[in-house]
């Protein structure tokens, strides 16, 4: 938690230091938005664990009286839904206009399906949402695949060294994050019922990947100051 807060402070500091025209570029403000969103909901989650009455009231409002200790509602909305959409926007910023429209379709489909599943009661907001997670995770994995296809087919990407591109590292870690936590996320409640020790161990993979993802978001924001380590994105000009 402290690591996340420090990363937000670092991210804010470097974002403020950026020149005006870079601040207006989605290459920099989108990672900053994602970082801010992530850290804020993590802190809010910690607060709900501290303020049990508030958590109980929200659960009751949503119809969950059996498990007032759960704050899955926060986790579902902020991480499994909003964060998925934000990551899709981030990957979209690295694609060409032709592939961007696929991401647009995926985002629209995801939002519509999420609303339908929640409103119809198939997936309750306060409970495990394996279907919504699976749809979101699959879309992230497909979007990552589109990025890698671009990496090996686009001339500008072929001229660059992928190991010096932050978009490559971000997409790679997103790919690992959503694939390594896939099975754990769809079987969350089952694991905590049957084998909480294993559940906790697998959740640490997710926590480790979160730290790495947050670190990469900070690097994305301060990439203009790290020109010796990382190259500018090949499609930087077109993302203005």
């Amino acid at each position: 938690m402290v690591a996340f807060d420090i990363s937000l402070l670092l991210g804010t500091y470097f974002f403020i230091k950026l020149p005006k025209e870079k601040k207006a570029n989605s290459t920099y403000w989108l990672p900053f938005l994602i970082l801010g969103h992530f850290v804020l909901y993590q802190n809010f989650g910690a607060y709900t664990n501290y303020n049990f009455e508030f958590k109980k009231a929200v659960n009751a409002y949503l119809g969950n009286t059996e498990n007032p200790k759960f704050n899955l509602w926060l986790f579902n909305i902020t991480e499994r839904q909003i964060l998925t959409v934000l990551y899709l926007f981030l990957i979209k910023s690295w694609l060409d206009p032709f592939r961007k429209k696929y991401i647009n379709w995926m985002i629209s489909t995801f939002v519509i399906l999420t609303l339908i599943l929640q409103i119809s009661g198939i997936e309750l907001m306060y409970s495990e949402q394996p279907i919504i997670f699976a749809i979101g995770a699959n879309m992230i994995l497909i979007a990552c695949g589109l990025y890698f296809i671009r990496l090996i087919t686009n001339e500008k990407y072929l001229e660059s060294n992928p190991l010096r591109l932050l978009s490559f590292w971000t997409t790679t870690f997103l790919l690992f994050n959503y694939s390594l936590t896939y099975i754990y996320s769809v079987s969350l409640l089952y694991l905590y019922k049957e084998n909480p020790t294993l559940g906790k161990s697998l959740s640490q993979i997710g926590q480790g990947m979160d730290i790495i993802n947050v670190a990469v978001l900070v690097l994305l924001i301060c990439s203009p100051f790290l020109t010796k380590l990382f190259d500018r994105e090949p499609l930087y000009e077109s993302s203005r």
Binding site: L180, Y182, S187, L198
Partner: peptide, 17 residues
């Protein structure tokens, strides 16, 4: 069995990626 499947699937997906 199901626990082993979960562990194996996670490792498999990691290896695949």
């Amino acid at each position: 069995n199901q626990i082993y499947i979960i562990i194996f699937s996670t490792l498999f997906l990691g290896g695949l990626m």
